[in-house]
Amino acid sequence: MITSTEKQKIQETDTQRIRRNKREILDSIYVTYLSVKLVPLHKLIIQFVFSLLLTSLYTTPMLAELLNLENVTDVSLLLKLLIPSLYTVPQIALFCFLFKKNLLMFFKKFDKKQIKLLVWAGIFSFGVAMAIAALLQYGFSYTAADNENTVSFVPSDSFVLIIQLLGEEVLFFSTFFFILKLFTYTEKPQYGISICISSVLSCALFGLAHLSTYDYRIMQCLFIIGFPCFIKILLLLKTRNLWCTYTAHLVHDFLAVLILALGTLVNQQ
């Protein structure tokens, strides 16, 4: 049975649809702002600092040295899964402990519209990343020679990705929520500006967290890794569901893995 609201959406013009989407985004900005305002500051600080320190440890050779992995030539799947688990599980455990009373503010069940939306968000963010990569490589001094990095595809890395990206989402949004929380103490809140500044800083930090992975190429990390994360912020404002942003991140990275797999297949022939 189609409700009256659904009938109105079907009958509305393109202009009306654009206006409705803008209104929904503005409402979501306001709700997100108020939701973060209700969360105690000390909890956001603890989560942000912990995620940042754990990411710093995870992205340096220190973890491999602690696990004595530097001399291991044949890493088993179990050991491969252990390493990202050491990064993700503590963050998730702390997040659930700190925000157990607020989890419904961040996580909800999927619906069909959200699934369709997150898939398109993942595809679009990947397209944006590829466009920026092409612009940096061919439009500026960032040449193809600078970006040469021979990487082969290993199927087991897909399972590692599923675990690792969940930890990355906690880092990204703990940064976003922490910065946004600071704006809630202003006497005259500017909701849109607060969201924009929080987005810019969290995207930049997320990109810079990948520096060691991409041989400390700042441009690549800021613009190819960090900038497309704006789409995740928009997705959060639209759905208010971190499961959607995580899954969109998976779609984005699995597209990259697919291209890498095709490249590996071509090189083997």
Rank of each mutant, 00 (worst) to 15 (best):
M1E: 08
K9E: 14
K9A: 12
K9Y: 10
Q11P: 02
E12L: 07
D14S: 12
Q16L: 11
Q16S: 10
Q16I: 04
I18P: 02
R23M: 06
L26Q: 13
D27A: 11
D27R: 13
D27Q: 07
I29M: 15
Y30D: 15
T32E: 03
L34F: 10
S35G: 09
L41M: 15
L41F: 15
K43H: 14
L44W: 08
I45W: 15
I46P: 00
I46M: 10
Q47A: 14
L54M: 13
T55G: 04
S56G: 15
L57P: 03
Y58V: 09
T60H: 05
L63C: 01
A64Q: 07
E65P: 02
L67Q: 12
L67W: 11
L69C: 10
E70R: 14
V72I: 12
V72A: 02
T73R: 11
V75H: 01
L79T: 14
L82N: 06
L82T: 13
Y87L: 02
T88G: 00
Q91M: 15
Q91Y: 08
Q91R: 07
I92W: 05
I92S: 04
A93Q: 06
F95K: 05
L98G: 03
L98Y: 05
L98A: 06
K101T: 14
N102D: 12
N102F: 07
L103G: 07
L104E: 12
M105R: 12
F106M: 08
F107N: 06
F107S: 04
K113I: 09
L118H: 00
L118K: 00
L118I: 00
A121R: 02
A121H: 04
G122N: 03
I123P: 03
F124M: 09
S125C: 13
S125N: 11
V128W: 03
V128H: 05
I132Y: 04
A133R: 13
L135D: 01
L136K: 08
Q137A: 10
F140H: 03
S141K: 09
S141G: 14
T143Q: 12
A144P: 01
D146L: 14
N149M: 11
V151N: 07
F153W: 10
D157F: 09
I163V: 15
I163S: 07
I163T: 08
Q164F: 01
L165F: 10
L166S: 01
G167C: 09
E168Q: 14
L171W: 05
F172A: 02
F176N: 09
F183D: 01
F183H: 01
F183L: 01
F183M: 01
T184I: 10
T184V: 09
Y185L: 08
K188Q: 13
Y191A: 12
S194V: 05
C196S: 11
C196E: 03
C196I: 13
S199P: 08
V200A: 14
L201F: 13
L201M: 13
A204V: 15
A204G: 10
H210E: 00
T213A: 11
T213F: 08
D215Y: 06
Y216E: 10
M219F: 06
M219E: 13
Q220K: 08
L222R: 00
F223P: 08
G226L: 01
F230D: 02
I231R: 05
K232L: 15
L236H: 00
L236E: 00
L237R: 05
N241S: 02
L242R: 03
L242K: 01
Y246R: 02
A248D: 10
L250T: 11
F254V: 10
L258R: 03
L258Y: 06
I259A: 12
T264F: 03
N267H: 12
Q269P: 02
